[in-house]
């Protein structure tokens, strides 16, 4: 299994397409950092105008922690789409290329094929999250320095002391990795159904976008189904920047994502083991 996983990772990281995602993440982080360097103060003044009438905020507010948080807020919605680029292509891409039938004529089981593709895609998505941590957090800290972090909410704000921030980021990135595992499972499931590499990528994007909209619509019907949508739970990482941290809610979201992940993985294995390979 380890050998198969190594081969799968070798194939992923030898493919030029894989690095597009890393390039996009770096480009977006860089653009936001540049914008914050040029006009970050004005942006903060605008954001804090309601708050500054009641509070006297002093110190280095425009710091690496805040910039990283802003980058994460804009990027974590798009990361699933980048994950789908690789995971959606995992089975369907091979079917499209014609290599799937060559792969399945080797003495390896279809369950193993699904599992290594799933694991390799998870490793890729974790690598993407680590890269995000490097360019969003560590690079921002290098450019803007450390300071207490302000987490602005619609009706309030939370001040987190600078020595209390780093572990929250660690928790947020770990949770984001779990959320991306769910996306990987969805993409792989869709990938098993088709022989066209583009289909599962677009379908994953479509599902994530539609469910995210449903998760955010304040209508009674959608409120009812909201707890059952995995997109609702994917934003659980934000809880690490609340005070106190809602561990119970984060835990429930993590379990929900885990159940979705496992369910979709098992469905993929069951379907793929019965599928006629005609590509």
């Amino acid at each position: 299994m380890t050998k198969l996983l190594q081969i799968e990772l070798y194939k992923i990281f030898k493919k030029p397409r894989t690095y597009i995602s890393f390039g996009i993440v770096a480009a977006i982080a860089f653009v936001i950092q540049l914008a914050m360097t040029a006009g970050g103060k004005e942006y903060l003044d605008f954001g804090l105008q309601g708050v500054s009438e009641q509070f006297d905020i002093q110190g280095k507010i425009l710091n690496g922690y805040l910039v990283a948080y802003l980058i994460l807020q804009s990027l974590l919605i798009h990361i699933p789409l980048l994950v789908a680029l690789v995971a959606g292509d995992a089975i369907a891409g091979e079917a499209n290329m014609g290599t799937l039938r060559l792969l399945l004529t080797q003495p390896i089981s279809r369950t193993q094929v699904v599992l290594v593709k799933w694991l390799a895609s998870i490793i890729y998505s974790i690598a993407l999250i680590v890269w995000l941590a490097i360019v969003a957090l560590f690079l921002s800290l290098l450019i803007f320095g450390r300071g207490d972090m302000i987490n602005l909410k619609s009706d309030t704000f939370i001040l987190i002391l600078k020595d209390d921030v780093m572990w929250r980021y660690a928790g947020a990135f770990a949770f984001a990795s779990l959320a991306m595992t769910t996306i990987v499972s969805l993409s792989i499931l869709l990938s098993a159904f088709t022989d066209n590499g583009i289909g599962p990528i677009v379908a994953t994007m479509g599902i994530v976008i539609v469910l995210t909209i449903l998760s955010n619509l304040e209508l009674p019907l959608f409120k009812m189904i909201r707890p059952y949508l995995f997109t609702t739970h994917m934003i659980g990482w934000k809880g690490f920047f609340d005070d106190p941290v809602p561990y119970r809610s984060i835990g429930k979201s993590a379990i929900a994502l885990g159940v979705y992940t496992l369910g979709m993985l098992l469905a993929t294995i069951a379907y793929f083991n019965k599928k006629d390979i005609r590509s």
């Binding site: 290329m97 290599t99 039938r101 060559l102 004529t105 080797q106 003495p107 390896i108």
Partner: peptide, 28 residues
């Protein structure tokens, strides 16, 4: 059994050596 079905599709972005090495590693 070794097989070619329809046409020998392989990983086009890899070299011939890398392709053969990958399938060699899949065996026992």
């Amino acid at each position: 059994i070794g097989a070619i079905i329809e046409k020998p599709d392989m990983y086009l972005y890899l070299s011939g050596w890398e392709n053969l090495k990958i399938f060699a590693a899949l065996g026992k």
